[in-house]
């Protein structure tokens, strides 16, 4: 890979747009999963009764069950959201940048 192609990529405003948008998107999603997980751990450590409360009148299932399953699903959904946008929108932008830099 020649030196110049990297220079041409860097000179392309779309490249900075890609890095900025994708970078921000990735960090926001990282923050979301950190907040969800450590929020969950914090509730367990400091307010476990919140999760131990019954889900409805007379039910054995507690609030903790849907919350716990929700944390698992959120991890799957968040990665899904990232893949959807990265493999579509961001990869298309990358393709254009590479094309224009040849």
């Amino acid at each position: 890979m020649s030196r110049t192609i990297y220079d041409r990529v860097r000179a392309n405003p779309k490249f900075h747009q890609l890095c900025e948008t994708r970078g921000r998107f990735a960090w926001i999603l990282t923050a979301v999963i950190l907040v969800i997980y450590y929020g969950f751990i914090a509730i367990i450590a400091f307010a476990p009764d919140m999760l131990g409360a019954p889900l409805g009148e007379g039910s054995v299932t507690t609030v903790g069950i849907p919350v716990g399953l929700g944390v698992i699903l959120s991890a799957i959904v968040l990665t899904g959201i990232y893949v959807y946008r990265a493999n579509g929108e961001f990869d298309e932008l990358t393709r254009q940048i590479v094309e224009e830099s040849k």
Binding site: I33, I36, Y37, V71, A75, T79, Y82
Partner: peptide, 9 residues
């Protein structure tokens, strides 16, 4: 499980 989203992002 929660390490996986971090690896992804």
């Amino acid at each position: 499980l929660v390490g996986w989203p971090v690896i992804m992002f």
